[in-house]
Nucleic acid binder design. Structure first.
Length: 569
RNA sequence: CGGGACGUAGCGCAGUUUGGUAGCGCGUCUGGCUUGGGACCAGAAGGCCGGGGGUUCGAAUCCCUCCGUCCCGACCA
């Protein structure tokens, strides 16, 4: 490709809308342009990289026996009504009516479609296991897109689905896919972590997310520096340290004027925050529920949602509390009429400082069962940095990450509701065990740029670079231009992917564009080197350039590319 | 959906406080000159000042309203 003809120009100044590095570089290098919030157009260079990512995905998916298919983005509502997600998914799914008034959706994912497809084809255990995948557009009308291609509304996803006779078979395949995922990200130059994660809307039990660790990530990760424990904060658990042996004291009511926060109360009693009991109020199905947890711990709302089996909980308002006769700031489980849920930490001490359910008063030495009760123990803890690892009790670390992929064991969630069943060896009808496996292509692209860049621009890994070589000529000298043209042809003929900067521009401009676009190898043909029969070669990732005999340049380039593409597990 | 910022030429911005009919830099086009790290000179094109309504003799500027964009949070397979 010649630069003079390439669509998508570079820009010097950073568009005001970009804040993170990958977003800035995507725009500056002319890779993408925004059409609307969270909706992007891909220019040729970006699209070539996307295709490189697709190549990697196809290679590794085929290697674990997945077959590529393609399913529609526009789907009838009936499909989603059958799985129930027509009702459970909110406004992130775009819905519309077709010309005959039929309800339709833009697919946010394809579990329903693939299940429908498979249930009509597969009816015997002899046809299982089966694994299908596609690389397809998804539309999710996210409440907030951000960070260029990190979080968008329209995006390409590789989504795979597997079907098994039983859970054991799914378990084995799940591990295969996990291994394939690590190979995929490694091929693209990304180091990722797999973390335990929430299944969210999709259902099922076991799932893992693949995280590229970066401060710009949206997900909070809880990681153990000592063992392999790694979890999304949404589901992270901790080891609860046993408190010192305590002598149970007598319940005592104490005037605590103006002490509403845990900190104020702890200071008043010259105690620690973990000696106080924190009471939180949520509304679930129009009913106020109290959650009690050790004072220094935060509550993980997702855990509460699961325990209440209600995704629509919210914190109670002050008015609601007042109406229910609850004294905000001085509330406790003692003598409470509403439903009380107790975190496991509440079982960990004999002497709690709790509210007296009366303005300006607290109790000290309150004891579970003797002085108050509730349902439990539950784990409501929002695990934060410093909590102890549930596996090895080392203090945990917190980092941020971008979710570039995920895998789920769906079990029979969809196959049961949508009747994707088969006849087993005994002639009995059973639902298939399903797994699903996603990777966001644009996110992957963004993360690669986020990982590989410097002050001048992108530094593409060979495997996903739009082209391998940036060839440029310096000056107007006819011999130089002729030699550069010749080299361009020579490289192309040899199968090297080359972007040829044939523009009549000053060298500085070309070099800056070369650095910005960031192809792995830069070749410069100039008068002064050509006089000595040399051509300059510079790797984008290295500081120094080298001069190479013109005759051996092709060989050298091919070697560099081959070495960079060599994959070792 | 809550909080914050913003919307003026392709991009980055000034002008808005104090109303008088739009400017700078980069980029683009023409010509000249230059050619190893975003040169220089001369000329040119390009704007419904986000949309609508109002106040006023007069609105980019003041008021109302809608829309859009970004950031933080909520949310998020």
């Amino acid at each position: 490709m010649k630069m003079s003809r390439l669509f998508g120009r570079t820009i010097r100044e950073v568009p005001a809308e970009a804040e993170i590095i990958s977003h800035k570089l995507l725009l500056r290098a002319g890779l993408v342009r925004k059409l609307a919030s969270g909706i992007y157009q891909y220019n040729p260079l970006a699209w070539r990289s996307m295709k490189k990512i697709q190549d990697i995905l196809r290679l590794e998916m085929e290697a674990v026996g997945m077959q590529e298919i393609n399913m529609p983005v526009v789907q009838p509502a009936e499909l989603w009504q059958e799985s129930g997600r027509w009702y459970s998914v909110g406004s992130e799914m775009a819905r519309f009516k077709d010309r005959s008034g039929r309800d339709m959706v833009l697919a946010i994912t394809h579990e329903e479609a693939v299940t429908e497809l498979v249930r009509n084809e597969i009816n015997s255990y002899r046809q299982l296991p089966l694994a299908l995948y596609q690389i397809q557009l998804k539309f999710r009308d996210e409440p907030r897109s951000r960070g260029g291609l990190i979080r968008v509304r329209e995006f390409y996803m590789k989504d795979g689905y597997s079907f098994h006779v039983d859970e054991a078979d799914l378990d084995v395949y799940y591990e295969d896919v996990m291994a394939a995922y690590f190979r995929i990200f490694k091929r693209a130059g990304l180091d990722v972590l797999s973390v335990e994660s929430d299944n969210g809307n999709i259902g099922g039990k076991v799932s893992h997310e693949f995280m590229y660790v970066t401060p710009i990530g949206e997900d909070r990760l809880i990681l153990c520096p000592n063992c392999d424990y790694a979890a999304n904060q949404e589901v992270a658990q901790s080891h609860l340290e046993k408190r010192e042996e305590q002598i149970a004291g007598d319940l005592e009511k104490v005037a605590t004027p103006g002490c509403k926060s845990i900190k104020e109360v702890a200071d008043f009693f010259k105690a620690e925050e973990h000696d106080c009991l924190k009471a939180l109020f949520y509304v679930s199905n129009e009913e106020i529920v109290m959650v009690a947890i050790q004072g220094d711990l935060e509550l993980n709302e997702l855990k509460l949602k699961k325990i209440l089996d209600d995704p629509n909980i919210r914190m109670a308002t002050e008015e609601e509390l007042e109406a229910a006769g609850i004294v905000a700031g001085y509330a406790s489980p003692k003598g409470q009429k509403i439903r009380v849920l107790l975190d496991r930490s509440v079982y960990n001490s004999e002497n709690w400082i709790i509210g007296a359910n009366q303005e300006g008063y607290h109790y000290q030495n309150a004891q579970l069962n003797r002085d108050f009760t509730g349902e439990g123990p539950f784990d409501f803890e929002l695990v934060e940095e410093g909590a102890l690892c549930p596996q090895c009790q080392t203090p945990l670390k917190e980092q941020r990450g971008v979710e570039v992929g995920n895998i789920f064991k769906l079990g029979t969630q969809y196959s049961a509701s949508m009747k994707a069943v088969f006849l087993d060896e005994k002639g009995e009808l059973r639902p298939m065990d399903m797994g699903c496996y996603g990777i966001g292509l644009g996110r992957m692209l963004s993360c690669v740029i986020e990982e590989y860049n410097d002050q001048y621009g992108i530094i593409w890994p060979m495997s996903v670079a739009p082209y391998h070589v940036y060839l440029c000529s310096v000056g107007k000298d006819e011999e130089v231009i002729a030699r550069a043209d010749e080299l361009y042809q020579e490289l192309k003929d040899a199968g090297v992917e080359v972007l040829y900067d044939d523009r009549d521009l000053r060298p500085g401009v070309k070099f800056n564009d070369a650095d910005l676009i960031g192809l792995p190898i830069r070749l410069v043909v100039s008068k002064r080197n050509l006089n000595e029969g040399l051509i300059e070669l510079k790797e984008r990732s290295k500081a120094e350039s080298e001069k190479i005999e013109a005759d051996s340049i092709l060989n050298r380039v091919q070697t560099l590319i081959a070495e960079a593409l060599k994959f070792e597990e």
